[in-house]
Write a protein that binds this DNA or RNA. Sequence first.
DNA 1: TTGAAAGCGCTAACAG
DNA 2: CTGTTAGCGCTTTCAA
Lengths: 339, 339
Amino acid sequence: MTEKKKKPTSFDVAKLANVHRSAVSRALSGKGRVSEETRERVMKAAQELGYRVNYLARGLHDQNSGLVGLVASRLDTPYRALQVKVAARELLAQGYCPILIVAEGDMTLPGLIDRLLNYNVAGMIVTSDSPPAEIIDECKRLAVPVVLVNRDLRGTEADRVQLDIQASGQLAFEMLYEAGGRRFAVLEPKEQTYTVTGRARVFADCCRAAGLPVTVISPQRQNYPDGLEAAELFQDSGSEADAVFCTTDLLALGFLDGLRVRQGCRIPEDLQILGYDDIEQAGWLGNDLSTIRQDAGAAAVLAVELMQARIEDIDRPFEVATIPIAPVWRGTTRKKDAP
Amino acid sequence: MTEKKKKPTSFDVAKLANVHRSAVSRALSGKGRVSEETRERVMKAAQELGYRVNYLARGLHDQNSGLVGLVASRLDTPYRALQVKVAARELLAQGYCPILIVAEGDMTLPGLIDRLLNYNVAGMIVTSDSPPAEIIDECKRLAVPVVLVNRDLRGTEADRVQLDIQASGQLAFEMLYEAGGRRFAVLEPKEQTYTVTGRARVFADCCRAAGLPVTVISPQRQNYPDGLEAAELFQDSGSEADAVFCTTDLLALGFLDGLRVRQGCRIPEDLQILGYDDIEQAGWLGNDLSTIRQDAGAAAVLAVELMQARIEDIDRPFEVATIPIAPVWRGTTRKKDAP
DNA sequence: TTGAAAGCGCTAACAG
DNA sequence: CTGTTAGCGCTTTCAA
């Protein structure tokens, strides 16, 4: 065990290779000009010592740690988990390292973001539910690029990747209408969320514009249990609806279970149901939920691109990229081709 | 727009507060002794300038960045997502910052871990499926604490947090036996995994030890689609089993759907089913899956504790902590109290 | 092409 | 209690 605990530095490599530290830096970073021979000697020495560049030191020097904040909440929710996964992967693929900040719980988001800022992050990707506007401002003050994914934060200027709310609500209406729905209901959670609330309203507007009735049901939040709650509310409301837009798959799945299991309702015979997101569970045989797919992979790629673009030019105009969506016909609506 | 783009340093604060930089450091870190008056002046100046300590510089100085690697795979799977969430939260709560490394995809794990090491991480928590032993060795060489969560990696020495495999398989057997099962089957994925394969085998052993028949069904992997596959395999096998241990909830849910939806099987009347993990979806009304809960929160806390203990004393003996488990009786088994 | 030297921002040990 | 000083490990001009 003659192993030294101390990690080798570029100085050690230099000594072993009989060159100066700066030569080591040049050889390994490939930045400056180095003779082939020197390069090889350095490489060998580095190899031998198990040397690795200290990114902290490098970051300290050129003000860029390569770290990126990835701020998310409700990470145990299928869609969010997917979002974080693809974002992390994309970041990693582009040479960044994502620092994961999970917002929920007792820890306060501003405090956590603060910590992030202490690391000189190259940027931040935020999918959290409620990022206080102040922190966005603080980031701007520090010239840290922030990309908001499906967040509103009206009034704050930042690059965004988001769903087309108008198109979403409208597509939902069209799908249910095409499937034969004529009396509608929509789930609009009390606890508001930019995209969810948005598409619920657009959907309702579409119904009204078509001169068709629409009942608004308001569960507390937007998860599975809230879907169950919504099923009760729906029943209590005595609504005559024959088609319901559930605004998130989790809501839809809860609603579906509440209706089927507790109320013995037949889907889609008695009632057609449409979700939103296309989480994996929507495709499970027992659920077979018709829904609208939100392309998480594309969203992640867009977010990272926007971030990089702003890193390169901090003063460029703010941009909004749109996440692609697509209808997914499954068993909770009547066949599209046989309405 | 008189804003300077340059971030303020401790030097700027010192200047404004009319003290030396070291005083600033002391005042803000609370480490050394500072007079009340100085502290206040520094605080005010720091506030005014929007100063924040540069952790990179600090880390460079005391060889500890406060960064921790969180290595995970299959992040879009409910249990894993939960695991990552609680681990990240615990890390954050303890003052660390988790760097999220997602293992799957084309990016090779060793390369990513390498990058992690460049950041002088204080430690690593690994829940990934297949962390090559070499990287663990590399970490040890660099004196970076590694905690393995539910990973085997026999031969490598590291702290671990893991399920009691023996107890798990046995509990599964006891539950199904208590519920009235007498002819068993168990799902043991071809693609082996330490804990999953382990409990499958222990379960089978328990059956045999009790002199009761047990059929082993081997789907490819351990996710929902594999559960569906297992249902087909099960039917083809012509097994007479009346109780099946599914080894993961995802498998169980797929198996359940395959049986119910495709084969019109009645659960639990025709067949009892037991899962493992207690993911959120197991509790959904439409599934109502009996299972064994694995306490992810406790596991995360244990993992972080182990990591901290090793940070404090790198030479302490390796430790293995056990994740608590508990039976969860739901509707896919007959009532425990009425077998 | 290579070496020398100046920092990046912070902290801790040491004087005063 | 406060200022001075010496690095932490790396990169990058600037000369040679």
